[in-house]
Nucleic acid binder design. Structure first.
Lengths: 114, 114
DNA sequence: TATTGACTTAACCAATTAGTTAAATAAAAA
DNA sequence: TTTTTATTTAACTAATTGGTTAAGTCAATA
């Protein structure tokens, strides 16, 4: 119900939430490829792939540049940055919470034992 | 068009793709909270929050246990693991690609200069 | 210049998402 | 036992997603 445009982190995580798109990213990590090459392993029409690619382009995770009559896609290696940083930061913070919970439980336990 | 149930990585990234859900996770990193406490900062009905929580529960990122007439939510600190590992692995791999591209470009450049 | 090849865009459809309000549930308090 | 509090579930809606096929676009080739 919200027409506001999603922020970059939303786009990145959304892009990553689909297995076809993750597979495309994995493929592109091995080097650039044309749309046709990217589509080949999937049992899915070309337009469907084309739209997955658009999602990735809009998330700034790949770009897509014309090369003769092909269209060559390549990874933007900085693209995972935002998502990775978010996860990394919060994972540490979470572990921190876990540690604090440990301390809390240990405290309670030793209180109980004493 | 696909009724197959999503895999855990899909669920995790999907859960993270919404700013309300990320904010809830950030809040829970500071410690457990009831549904009402979690809902309070948002201009959104309680049922809406309740469903965001369900998404997080189904992604195994939080749990939600009855405590008297409240319902107390807490983080499952291991929950970011899968997503983090995926990102971390691929980011490295990706930087690898970038390095290889650098080498490739430098090689071409020195070829050009010689 | 007409055709072919490689895509993308358009138009459509079914399923899912993210919100709403109203009704149900379950435990605590009166 | 009735009421209140906290929350979920149900029923609904609008927008978005992820697929389809058919029609366009645009560069290379015949």
């Amino acid at each position: 119900m919200n027409a506001a445009e999603p922020n970059p982190l939303d786009r990145t995580f959304h892009a990553l939430a689909d297995p076809t798109r993750r597979a495309i990213l994995v493929r592109l990590a091995r080097g650039p490829a044309t749309v046709g090459e990217l589509a080949e392993p999937f049992a899915m029409s070309l337009p469907a792939i084309s739209r997955h690619l658009r999602v990735l382009v809009e998330a700034a995770m790949i770009h897509n540049q014309r090369d003769g009559k092909r269209r060559r896609c390549r990874l933007r290696p900085e693209a995972l940055g935002g998502a990775h940083d978010w996860l990394d930061f919060h994972r540490r913070f979470w572990s921190g919470s876990l540690d604090r919970l440990d301390v809390h439980l240990k405290t309670r336990l030793s209180e109980h034992n004493s």
